[in-house]
Design a protein around this nucleic acid. Sequence first.
DNA 1: GAAAAACTGGGTGTTTTAACGGTATTTTTT
DNA 2: AAAAAATACCGTTAAAACACCCAGTTTTTC
Lengths: 217, 217
Amino acid sequence: MVEVVMVDDHVMMRQCLASVVNSFEGFKVIHEANNGKEFIEWLNPDKLPDLVLMDINMPYMNGHETAVWLSTHYPKLKFITITMQNDERSIIRMLRSGTRGYVLKDSEILDFKQALEAVMNKGIYINTVLYKHIIENLHGHQANLETEQSVLSNLNEREIEFLRWLCSDKSYKEIAVEMFLSPRTIDGYRDALFEKLKVTSRIGLVLFAIRNEIVKI
Amino acid sequence: MVEVVMVDDHVMMRQCLASVVNSFEGFKVIHEANNGKEFIEWLNPDKLPDLVLMDINMPYMNGHETAVWLSTHYPKLKFITITMQNDERSIIRMLRSGTRGYVLKDSEILDFKQALEAVMNKGIYINTVLYKHIIENLHGHQANLETEQSVLSNLNEREIEFLRWLCSDKSYKEIAVEMFLSPRTIDGYRDALFEKLKVTSRIGLVLFAIRNEIVKI
DNA sequence: GAAAAACTGGGTGTTTTAACGGTATTTTTT
DNA sequence: AAAAAATACCGTTAAAACACCCAGTTTTTC
């Protein structure tokens, strides 16, 4: 019997899926958690589950963070991502963090069953549609998103703060006042960001900030 | 027997919920649709269902549009919104469009059952937590969002297109070329939007466009 | 302890944006 | 058919944004 743990903050979804998993022959849900944090606190090294099904978008500790943690601490523990996010960035990120399967919440239950069985047998399940999608975008948009991730990590606290201020109606002069800096310094910050982010206008900075969730809209 | 129709593009979620609804005594799912458009095309005036459960976020025809259509054409047809969106704007909008219940996908199945029964008996079900949430926010943030909604509907096609162009690195001059207009005309567009949206800079316009999902990030 | 990097501030232009003043033509309303 | 509204357009000016140049101070790195 494959012992399964469900990690998802959407209780109804989780309960529904749990009952479906229980109806699959050979699978049994032994625990449910609301998020990654709850889950890893529950984890017992002496009695690991066989399979973890988890969402990406969760409070406190999301799917990505949990995946990274699991890959470090229990690299043999299999987990499948079950989510609504079908953008390449999410998928690539999760695959890199060691997920054995990626199932969309808008797929059929049959696909879901196949994913579970595939992962328990061969090891990895990727939906064909998604796979094509990823391959097709690997050299376009995706590259940019991956790059943005690394660019983002090269920004310091002050620059992040500045980016937040940029996403407002304020002029640079006003932002300088808010940040207790001279307008000249602000000028330098802007120019540095133009260089780092490869854009040529404040709009570009704002879009970057929003894409990378530096500001909440 | 209450005849129920499920409208949700997330197939797995929909199937899960359908099986749960079928397990409730006195309820029976008689049809499933992927979106509002499919649903209303299926609708037969001579044999209406008793209850419709639908998501908000759907392709082709979303929950809100469907709700408006239903309220106009079949005002007596009861429908419940089942969604992940718990922001006040979505809730208020759906309630105004005549939804009898608003259930979050992260609530318990028991709550879900209560909602169905409540709607079939008394008529309206609103989760206590959500209700408090709405009331608390009625005079703050919410007001602005509601206003933006109405402002949005006052924009014409050309202005929407312009807003989309604004969300790029291009200057007004370049946008004029793209839109086959004189830079002066673009000037006029901008000034009109400044007036309509009560902002004073291009950044303000960009933020509005993103908040209201005129551009996809 | 010296070199490199990062943070802060400055000068001086050009280009773009914003705010003001308008007009001519077409479409919609009455 | 006249009035009103919407659309496309134009000019001027001041302010803001952008693009370069630079240097002194602190912090990090080696």
